[in-house]
Amino acid sequence: MAEQPLLDVEQVSKSYGPRKALDGVSLQVGRGEFVALLGPNGAGKSTLFQLLSGLFVADGGSIRIGGLDLRTHMTAALARLGVVFQQPTLDLDLGVAANLRYHARLHGLGGRHARERIDAELARLGLAERAQEPARALSGGNRRKVELARALVHQPEVLLMDEATVGLDFASRRQLLDDVHALVASRGVGVLWASHLVDEAEGADRVVVLHLGHVLFTGTPAELVAHCGAADLAAAFLQLTAGGGRHAA
């Protein structure tokens, strides 16, 4: 990457008491890049996302979003970030548009500008006609779409998707993934997509494999397959995470 990465994680560590959840994790996401963060359950993905979204502070290392250090420029860095959390975070009693309006105001968008952004994002995801319905009335797949639309209302440079497809059926999963890939292509957003489902990483520009708090591999999906000498990405991932050693590409 010639230009400065939009998301730059350098040697980040985090411990909870004696347990080291992350140990010297480094990764980068560039403009218009889709990076898949693959890791089995307990790899440290959720901890990393909590650090990236400012919910926790790392014990060591640095996180830069759009060139801004999260530790010293927290609010300015968070303004450039959109997050879809693993846990659903819609207020189910509020309407679809009201959920987005709440988020827009928290990001300093009000009035006509907010309305236009909300309408545009809902229309892009085919949800314009459901804007006034309570979020509770939507299917799981559509609720996720609303959360994606919400994360994009303030036009972030970096989008974090934290196991966003958990609980969705195959079609909804595929559609959400396609929506995010389209976003990368059309707007140049940098995406970090965390998942334990290998098929979601197949179309990624790069794959970062996280296991037991360590980065085991960084490279393209093809490089990962070649690195492990495996038949496909799933086999490579299984082979790599069967042990706990460190590798890099």
Binding site: S53, G54, T75, A77, V83, Q87, Y102, L106, G108
Partner: peptide
């Protein structure tokens, strides 16, 4: 518990 707190605390405000 419902996750809304995360949304609030990741807003770009002190």
């Amino acid at each position: 518990e419902m996750g809304m707190m995360r949304l609030l605390l990741t807003a770009p405000l002190p």
